[in-house]
Design a protein around this nucleic acid. Structure first.
Lengths: 215, 215
DNA sequence: ATTTTCCTTTACGTCTAGTAAAGTATAAGT
DNA sequence: ACTTATACTTTACTAGACGTAAAGGAAAAT
């Protein structure tokens, strides 16, 4: 008589270490995406390269899109840390520089692929936005709000809108591939976006952070 | 002996009127794209709805992407005419308003689909850019340059960059579908982009509309 | 009526997604 | 050691779509 599955005592073959096979599968996805667009990625190819069977893939991920999303999640979930000591403008410039570099690598390709896949499967768009874009935005918005609080940026600044004006053109170039997304372009975008935002008289202290003025 | 095909005298069945069957085929594509994403559009379905055979489709267009692009070209090639009498700012606002409306209709869906398809077929991206985006940009850039020449905008303004900051966020919302692309958002983008561009002393003719910000 | 050309229909070969069925491995229990 | 229960893999299959080839029908000149 089999015992009730009350404790850590199970009958039969235990689950294999998901961490290991998952890593191998996501590696395979990552490597294949370096070679071909997501559209041309076949589950058979992933299974073959990972050394597993196709049903194994479907056991853990319901679709190709979900699998790619999982790889993206696993590999590109880091949010850039920006030292609080710098001015908000410097923080923005650092982030944008970093984003340009990422967009010109595998990160950029996969983001573009995911947005493309998302046009036929909105759940991908939703997850991409909720799990990746939203948190990244939040941390940059925090930078901007810091800049507003410190008097570096005008009080009337809308952080979300400012962010959109800087970042969206970069993503669009990523998607359209033309013209190329360069670091210089990122700089120009910041320069322009800050034209009407920057407080004229504001001077960064050498540590950057000045007390918020009272009234 | 067949005569040389020197003149309008051909032997055999004449070519059927391409204009007619093309229109029917592109109608079919258009209708089907109202119902499903480009990814799920099948050539069989197009052929069936248009009442033609599949080989006929491949006779004129080499791929599904090319077919969709042809429909897009045929249906959405109009560029908005903006009266030269208005201020550059008004011209921008008119264009943006128009673009929001278009993006929320079939135009927007097809653009998004084409960009998505383009991720696996760069020739689509290229044609989309060269044949559609570039000319539209040119006409808006002309508006902005008019504004610079008239002194409405600062001389240092970079028209392309300004345009990117306004339009790219709209396209990105179109592609990400979240948050929704509203007319208000378009307005806010212009408001913000013009903050650092507008000449302080410049006064529009009485047609200019002073507008309060909408929180 | 015959010929010539164009076009459509039908049918096919291939590829891929996703699933079902059968077989193999690894543990506990006796 | 041997059975049993469970997890996983391999193989094979169905369904659908692409893109093409072959055959037949339609419309003009002769």
């Amino acid at each position: 008589m089999p015992r009730a599955k009350s404790k850590a005592v199970h009958l039969g073959r235990p689950r294999s270490d998901a961490a290991v096979s998952h890593a191998e599968i996501l590696d395979a996805v990552s490597e294949l995406l370096k070679e071909k667009p997501a559209r041309d990625l076949t589950m058979d190819a992933v299974a073959k390269r990972a050394g597993v069977g196709k049903p194994t893939l479907y056991k853990w991920w319901p679709s190709k899109g979900a699998l790619i999303m999982a790889m993206f999640h696993d590999r590109f979930n880091a949010i850039l840390e920006v030292p609080e000591a710098t001015s908000a403008e410097e923080a923005l410039r650092t982030r944008v520089k970093h984003l340009v570099a990422q967009c010109n690598g595998l990160f950029g390709k996969v983001v573009a692929d995911l947005i493309a896949e998302g046009q036929a499967d909105p759940s991908i768009l939703k997850e991409l936005y909720e799990s990746h874009i939203r948190p990244r935005r939040a941390s940059t918005v925090a930078d901007i709000e810091r800049g507003i609080a410190s008097g570096e940026f005008l009080a009337a600044t809308d952080p979300e809108l400012l962010l959109d004006a800087i970042v969206a053109p970069m993503y669009l170039r990523l998607l359209l591939r033309h013209p190329a997304l360069t670091e210089q372009y990122g700089k120009q975008l910041i320069d322009q976006a800050l034209l009407g935002i920057r407080t004229p008289k504001w001077r960064p202290g050498r540590r950057g952070k000045r007390d918020a003025r009272s009234a």
